[in-house]
């Protein structure tokens, strides 16, 4: 008599994978902060952090420690439960997105069991990412509103409307990709690219739109209006301090990481190694998994670098410019891209 009918092995396997990915996310996020400083320094022709450890590689740990031990301040007039809920939500949604991304080729054990390097290869796939991203707005909004500070509120509303607005062209650009794959499953999207070539070749315009939108979704420069210092002091997390602030900052970097991963998966073939036929190498599946994972990470690192690069190169938009770009340029372009893709696919099918 079983109380629960559960495949414990599956649970174990997935738990390991989940914790691995979360750890990875944190690690990458930490070192993206470091990279950010280094890149900034490089672009500004200075050294950047170099005191904590060799080349300052322990700098993120020091920053984290600082945030942990800082005094926790919760403003009196704030809405306490929501004030705490805000950063938590931001963090949770940022981490949740990674569930459907295939990180590497499946690992086949000696017993013949296939262990997919993906938490869940669900039917909805990319749509799930979208749903989680759309919920991500609440972290910012609740945090900003709960602070009971008008600058925070303004920033929160700006951020939310920016995210909601840019979700539209993002989705439209994505639809063109889905036309080509005919499936929402991430594994199939990657598989399609391995077979027919990366989507970037067929969808350059779609990728550019997607990329711009990803920048906006992550509130990165040039779309970092929610944090615009000169108008809104420090943005929606102005009243936050200590680790709650840390959560917000961390969530942003995790978002960057995940959007890089999504872009790499959707347009750059995911874990696919370009220009070579891996199957002819005859490596066993463990090494294949490791190599493909490294390839994906390399792609992600490249995108992360581009994010940072842009931040220190391009100035911030004005709010009306941001909305104009989103609604009047990107959406029509994305629609056009979609229609052309559809037409071409129809023509080729005939």
């Amino acid at each position: 008599m079983h109380l629960l009918v559960i495949d414990w092995w599956l649970i174990l396997e997935k738990s390991l994978l989940i914790f691995g990915i979360i750890g990875l996310s944190f690690f990458i996020a930490m070192y993206t902060t470091y990279a950010e400083r280094k890149v900034a320094a490089w672009l500004q022709d200075r050294r950047g952090p170099n005191r904590a450890g060799p080349f300052g590689i322990f700098q993120p740990l020091a920053d984290g420690g600082k945030l942990f031990f800082k005094e926790e301040i919760i403003p009196l007039a704030s809405n306490k439960p929501l004030f705490i809920l805000g950063p938590a939500l931001a963090m949770i949604t940022a981490l949740l997105t990674s569930t459907v991304i295939p990180w590497a080729t499946p690992f086949i054990t000696k017993g013949g069991d296939v262990i997919a390097m993906q938490v869940a290869d669900v039917d909805m796939g990319i749509l799930l990412v979208f749903s989680i991203v759309s919920v991500g707005v609440y972290g910012i909004m609740i945090g900003g509103w709960a602070s009971n500070n008008k600058f925070s509120l303004m920033a929160a509303i700006r951020g939310a409307s920016q995210m909601v607005s840019y979700e539209l062209p993002m989705g439209l650009a994505l639809i063109a990709v889905l036309f080509m794959t005919g499936s929402l499953k991430m594994s199939e999207i990657v598989g399609n690219q391995i077979e027919n070539g990366w989507h970037i070749i067929y969808q350059p315009l779609g990728f550019i739109i997607f990329f711009v939108c990803a920048l906006a979704e992550c509130n990165r420069t040039p779309f970092d209006l929610p944090e615009a210092e000169n108008e809104l002091n420090f943005g929606y997390h102005q009243e936050y301090s200590s680790m709650k602030l840390g959560f917000y900052l961390f969530a942003e970097y995790i978002n960057m990481f995940i959007s890089s991963a999504v872009m790499a998966t959707l347009y750059f073939g995911g874990y696919d190694i370009p220009f070579v036929n891996e199957a002819s190498w005859g490596l066993n599946s463990f090494w294949m998994t490791v190599i493909s994972f490294s390839v994906l990470m390399a792609k992600i690192s490249f995108f992360l670098f581009v994010f940072l690069w842009i931040r220190w190169t391009i100035p911030r938009f004005r709010y009306d410019q941001l909305m104009n770009l989103g609604w009047k340029k990107l959406i029509p372009l994305a629609l056009l891209n979609m229609i052309i893709t559809a037409a071409v696919i129809l023509l080729l099918k005939k």
Binding site: L128, S134, V135, Y138, S161
Partner: peptide
């Protein structure tokens, strides 16, 4: 599954954001 995701996108992600706004 489809409705589950659409429910989140449409209701949680769009409609309720409007309410909150």
């Amino acid at each position: 599954q489809f409705l589950a995701v659409v429910n989140i996108i449409v209701y949680a992600g769009a409609i309720m954001v409007l309410f909150l706004f």
